[in-house]
Computed example of a mutant assay.
Amino acid sequence: MDRNLPEGEGPVHVPLGHIVANEKWRGSQLIQEMQGKIKLVFEDGLTSADFYLSSRSCILYITEADLVAGNSYRKRIVRVRNSGNLQGIVVVEKTQISEQYFAAIQKFTVLDLGMVLLPVANQMEASCLIVQLVQEQTKEPSKNPFLRKKRSMLSELSLVRTVQQIPGVGKVKAPLLLQKFPTIQRLSNASIQELEGVVGHTVAQQIHAFFSQPR
């Protein structure tokens, strides 16, 4: 067994242009929306990841029901996080019902574990996101070393979506904040005075309070 993969899962071979999906998703709306856009291979026995984009990149899909049920989903995330070379992307259903639990998983995943978290409204939106991620995986890397140093589309998307979820920020202020504070770590360490220059006093207080809450 590959020591860098989550406990209980052996190496997963993912053909180019395909994704390997956990058998439990067969017949779901998520799979139905992806069919015809990407090639799917189903595999039983995947205990941590729901989808493998490559042998070193996987998606953990946290549903509305998972969030409402409690914190058991955290064990799966931690297993992937501790697996070494495997990059885990956490996709979370943020709905009216699960919204009250979203801040907790956002802080746990992004701030505590340093992983990518992408909120989606439903499985239809999630299918579009997964297709987009698969397409990026199959792109040829740039031969220009300066271009290779740029953040990937996935990193940019994750950052923007994460910052948009902070109370008082939204779609307008998120890009402004990221111009000044290009990482979550720098944004979380910014003082109210530093934030005021970008978003004003009221929102600066909201952002500071968001990052100051006990996790």
Rank of each mutant, 00 (worst) to 15 (best):
Gln132Trp: 15
Val198Trp: 05
Pro145Asp: 07
Met153Val: 12
Asn144Gly: 04
Ala204Asp: 10
Val169Cys: 03
Met124Cys: 06
Lys139Ser: 04
Ala190Phe: 05
Ile192Met: 07
Phe102Leu: 01
Pro145Arg: 05
Ile105Thr: 07
Glu156Ala: 06
Glu136Met: 13
Leu147Arg: 15
Pro119Thr: 13
Pro145Asn: 08
Gln193Val: 10
Ala126Val: 07
Ala104Lys: 07
Val203His: 03
Leu187Thr: 05
Leu113Val: 01
Pro182Met: 09
Ser152Ala: 10
Gly114Gln: 03
Glu196Lys: 12
Pro175Arg: 06
Gln106Ile: 00
Val160Thr: 15
Thr162Ser: 06
Gly170Gln: 13
Ile105Val: 13
Val163Cys: 06
Gln164Leu: 01
Ala204Arg: 13
Val134Lys: 15
Gln185Asp: 08
Val134Trp: 13
Lys171Gln: 10
Lys107His: 10
Leu118Tyr: 11
Met124Arg: 14
Gln193Ser: 13
Gly114Arg: 01
Arg161Val: 00
Met153Phe: 15
Glu125Ala: 14
Leu195Asn: 01
Gln135Pro: 02
Met115Trp: 09
Tyr101Thr: 00
Leu176Asp: 13
Lys180Ile: 03
Val172Thr: 13
Gln185Pro: 00
Met115Lys: 12
Leu176Ser: 14
Thr109His: 03
Ala190Lys: 11
Asp112Arg: 09
Gln106Ser: 05
Arg161Tyr: 01
Ser152Thr: 15
Thr183Trp: 00
Glu156Gly: 08
Ile184Glu: 03
